[in-house]
């Protein structure tokens, strides 16, 4: 079934898109979006290769765990962004930002 590989490639593409955006953009909200999309990319590779004639439930469980971890991290990050803005006036990291 070719769609498995198709989705895996889409997953790889999402991972890379997210990585690029994480490094390039300075606004913290965009970085959070980028990380979430990177995560979706990894999950997609994981589940795509697990589908087929006998779907493997372990990757499904891994992805559900991953989604919950991602929302926890995003919530923490968003609350931090608000505090950073309150203290520094900007929702960005200082000049020597994430490479």
């Amino acid at each position: 079934m070719n769609n498995i590989y198709l989705y895996s490639i889409v997953g790889a593409g999402l991972f890379t898109l997210g990585l690029y955006a994480l490094i390039s953009y300075r606004h913290l909200l965009r970085k959070i979006l980028a990380l979430n999309i990177m995560g979706s990319g990894v999950f997609l590779i994981l589940v795509a290769l697990a589908s087929g004639e006998t779907p493997d439930p372990v990757p499904h469980a891994m992805v559900i765990t991953g989604i919950v971890v991602a929302v926890s991290a995003s919530a923490l990050a968003l609350a931090l962004v608000l505090r950073v803005q309150a203290e520094t006036g900007k929702a960005e990291l200082p000049e020597e930002s994430l490479e």
């Binding site: 505090r83 203290e87 990291l93």
Partner: peptide
């Protein structure tokens, strides 16, 4: 400001590292 900015940078580093690991 120092602690908070380094905290969020640290968070991004952690998440990026974890995603590569995953």
């Amino acid at each position: 400001a120092d602690a908070l900015t380094s905290a969020i940078r640290y968070l991004f580093v952690n998440l990026l590292g974890s995603l590569f690991y995953l």
